[in-house]
Design a protein around this nucleic acid. Structure first.
Lengths: 358, 358
DNA sequence: GTGAAAGCGCTAACAA
DNA sequence: TTGTTAGCGCTTTCAC
């Protein structure tokens, strides 16, 4: 690609150069590069040798222009600071490079303007498909993608259209697992430390939380759901508020591990011990969970599996031109560590008699 | 790029389509897209409107083929699980997209074979330049790059050649800051929890540690340097070994924060308190540092600055065809938190008199 | 101020 | 079995 040395004889070698060196046409070289059986083994071997010796690296730009496929996939994640996404990126990259394709990475930071720009840039580069790990997608950016007929895989949007598949975490069943465990451990006052207020996904998860509670015959009040922003700081503040307001709470289910760790930290800073005084359950299962004390119980999401699901869904869209799109789900596993334990209900003991509103 | 809908009228719009719609030639459309002053403002405006309405997105592949510049930069990092690299990637990406360029990310996992393959793939995609955050680069992969005349920026290699610049952390001055502080705090038995045995960078850092100790008039013995692998587990095991062998140690300087956190954890699991019984100083300054208890003192590396240094060095190589390459350094700051404190020398108290070998 | 045309590196009919 | 050739989408002289 580089033309940095216009004074030099040539710059990087082109197929033409190899062809000339070998005394054949570019077509033959191209065939050799694709292991076409149509070429004389002797010629092929000779050309292979020349390619090797000259250290020729084919220029994919030409190929992409011709074929209409770049072999590049766009991946957009909100934030690499969250180990969950960092890990996903690693798994996705591995899958992509195993197939000699590439990954164009964009960080969206939950910002619609960045999402739009990144989407546009990806389309300009001629990506073959896009995976967006954002559930709140602005219609505008989204339609730009659709309009350009590039297959898209989203996460947790629970919307499917032709050319657009979605992979969602099966949060409801996860919440049921967690709440079922907590109930058996004697917990009644369970709070959901949710995501960002106003987002569709947050609302959906609140609903599934309420549904899960209901299915376990546990009551909820308005204070049973508090909002945060998926960060440690956010979880810390949410928990602090909860404690200051003396909301009855013996267990907290969190929207993700980072906010759970924030809540964990808030508890400790109040002299409370997670798992003894108040139980905490996160969602994701990041390495950090086992590095804090006591280690965090969580609903584990298998990132390798998730990355595979996304990649394969994209591959399927790619394969079938008018694919209707599909909705996939990934289950989660309850991983019990030490931030959970039997209920002690220290904060506001359940009165022995009288009206308990919850 | 996509030819997924061969049955459809066309697929994504090309410049030709816009030209036809506007009743002009592709040359004019191209000029408009580049804000050329040579085009009639009225025509320009009309074309702009059409582009907007049709939601036309130029195909960069054609442009790249023509110009010889893809506007794509390759970034290779060893491991996104390390927050240091994840953070670097975020800063680098931001810098790249601010200039409407792209970032092709590859994870090398310290594996020479992956590094080589990734380098090849990047060259095939016609990247304009490459940044490799690996200090141990196999000659083979490296020469492939050089041979193809793509500018390269490496990290901590301390080797510079035409077309190849290096950005290095000024570890020596950092170690001096740390050791100076520790000495003032009364520490004499300072151990360096180093990197992977056998690597060039490890050897270099060992040497600078010895030099720093010497400059502070502190003695070293063979046990003053132990090896690890930059991970939490590695740091844990190294510290365990140190404790089991009853090596006299009152302070530990670590090769990075992750291994420091491992050492921290090992201390705690032995009932020792970092900062009180043994002091620990890391290197990097990752968010995790403040999430453990007691929080980790460290030598802070500014990732935003580092990313800028790398990007700008690459830009400079790109600008000047026969650039000789440059060696840059980034300083570190000692950040004191609670994993450091006055010496107590509990493990092996200094004898009041007699020969002290260290 | 605008258009025609060549060509970037590669592939794949089609010819030979 | 191999070569010739026509483009893929875009830029950019050069001519009008």
């Amino acid at each position: 690609m580089s033309k940095r040395f216009p004074d030099r004889p040539s710059g990087p070698l082109k197929m033409r150069d190899i062809a000339t060196l070998a005394g054949v046409s570019t077509a033959t070289v191209s065939r050799v590069l694709h292991n076409s059986p149509l070429v004389d083994p002797k010629t092929a071997e000779a050309i292979q040798r020349i390619i090797k010796k000259a250290n020729y690296i084919p220029n994919n730009t030409g190929k992409a222009l011709k074929s209409g496929h770049s072999g590049i996939f766009g991946l957009m994640v909100p934030d690499l600071g969250n180990p969950f996404f960092a890990d996903f990126v690693q798994h996705f990259e591995q899958r992509v490079v195993d197939r000699d394709q590439e990954m164009l990475l964009a960080i969206s930071n939950h910002r619609p303007d960045l999402m739009l720009r990144s989407t546009r840039r990806m389309l300009m580069r001629g990506v073959d498909g896009i995976v967006i790990l954002e559930s709140e997608i602005e219609t505008e950016s989204y339609e730009t993608v659709l309009h350009n007929q590039v297959p898209l895989v989203t996460m947790n949007r629970l919307v499917v259209e032709p050319g657009v598949s979605d992979v969602a975490i099966d949060v409801l069943s996860g919440q049921k697992k967690a709440i079922s465990y907590l109930k058996k451990a004697g917990h009644r006052h369970i709070v959901f430390l949710s995501g960002i207020a106003g987002q569709k996904i947050t609302e959906a998860r609140n609903q599934s939380f309420l549904q899960a509670m209901k299915s376990m015959h546990l009551a909820c009040r308005r204070e049973s759901i508090v909002y945060s922003n998926f960060t440690v700081e956010g979880g810390f503040h949410a928990m602090e508020t909860l404690l200051h307001q003396k909301v009855p709470v013996s267990a907290v289910l969190c929207a993700n591990d980072l906010s759970a760790i924030g809540a964990h930290s808030a508890l400790r800073s109040h002299g409370l011990t997670p798992g003894r005084d108040i139980s905490i359950i996160g969602l994701d299962d990041i390495p950090l969970d086992t590095m804090i004390s006591p280690p965090l119980s969580t609903l584990s999401i298998a990132r390798d599996h998730l990355a595979r699901l996304c990649y394969d869904a994209l591959a399927r869209l790619l394969l079938k031109p008018n694919h209707p799109g599909e909705q996939l789900f990934l289950g989660v596993d309850l991983v019990l560590r030490e931030s959970t334990g039997p209920c002690r209900e220290r904060v506001t003991p359940v009165p022995s008699r009288g009206k308990v509103r919850s």
